[in-house]
Design a protein around this nucleic acid. Structure first.
Length: 167
DNA sequence: ACGATGATGAAC
DNA sequence: TTCATCATCGTA
């Protein structure tokens, strides 16, 4: 199992290394285990594409919690987005899980895995029913691209290659 | 390729 | 109270 320490660092590095690992969801007595194939990294105040860009607010407060905290938010009136918080408490950062094997799209995978606001603010682990397991396989072929849906952040931040996709 | 969708938090 | 949003689906 990948523990919270893994996330206590730069989200860009952690997002890239998270590819290939297994996202595990236990719900209604059933355990689903899916390989992570797409992630995006989000930073703090400096990152104009991040929810933390305007500082701490009630909505984004999980991003300011300890590494390994789950940050789930609702957007476009219909989709839940799953993030894992990075860096130490008070220093915001997060990884958006955008795709798993057989289920591409951040809103689709949360729907499939029954992830919603009930998980917001909890921590990854057996307790919350959401955790990550290592993949002994390494040396994946990884593609870097700009992040999706953040044109408003301006060219500098919108063009940063903070999205990672398993080939 | 494009428009409709439509809850929530945050800004005004 | 108004606005923008870290998408997705259906229709072309």
């Amino acid at each position: 199992m990948i523990n919270a320490d893994f996330f206590e660092r730069n989200p860009v590095l952690a997002a890239r290394e998270l590819l290939g690992a297994y996202l595990v969801r236990k719900i209604d007595g059933k355990t689903v285990r899916l390989k992570i194939v797409e992630t995006e990294a989000y930073g703090g105040r400096e990152d104009l594409g991040s929810h933390a860009r305007r500082g701490q607010t009630p909505g984004n407060s999980p991003m300011f919690e300890r590494a390994g905290t789950i940050y789930v938010y609702f957007t476009y009136g219909m989709h839940w987005m799953l993030n894992i918080v990075c860096r130490e408490k008070g220093n915001p950062g997060a990884i958006l899980i955008r795709g798993v094997e057989g289920c591409i799209g951040p809103g689709r995978l949360t729907k499939k895995l029954g992830i919603d606001k009930r998980l917001n603010g909890l921590r990854i682990g057996k307790r919350s029913g959401l955790w990550i397991e290592e993949n002994p396989e390494k040396n994946f072929k990884i593609k870097k691209t700009p992040r999706i849906g953040i044109a408003y952040a301006g060219p500098i931040w919108a063009n940063k290659k903070h999205r990672f996709v398993l080939e």
